[in-house]
Amino acid sequence: MTDKIAISVSSADGLVATMDMQFGRAPFFLLVDGETHSPIKTLSNDASQAVQGAGTRVAVLMAQNDVTDVISGQFGPSACTALEELNVRMWTAPSGLSAQEALLEFSKGNLSRQSIMVMQ
């Protein structure tokens, strides 16, 4: 199975969408093919308005969609634990990038890997 990348974005506009910096609260996730970077689909995040535990629910959404890598701005502690447990790699991008720009930085190896170790 090939890698599948999810990027937290603020709108359902494909690769030109601007990134949303909060993993759990992002309204949409753009899924792209890990090799070609071509868009597969946009997922809407039903948990974005959840009172609590949004991040953990999105972690499940990622796993259900076979996501291997997720690019966002910040991951909450519970989301971080869940994603790690579900073997989804977390990458943090600086704010202000479009999905396409974030992918470019990702492929250049410019994004930093987030893990529980980093969180603690």
Binding site: A47, Q52, Q64, A82, L86
Partner: peptide, 9 residues
Amino acid sequence: AFNAILAVG
């Protein structure tokens, strides 16, 4: 109701 339990697979 509080997203405190996750089940995947």
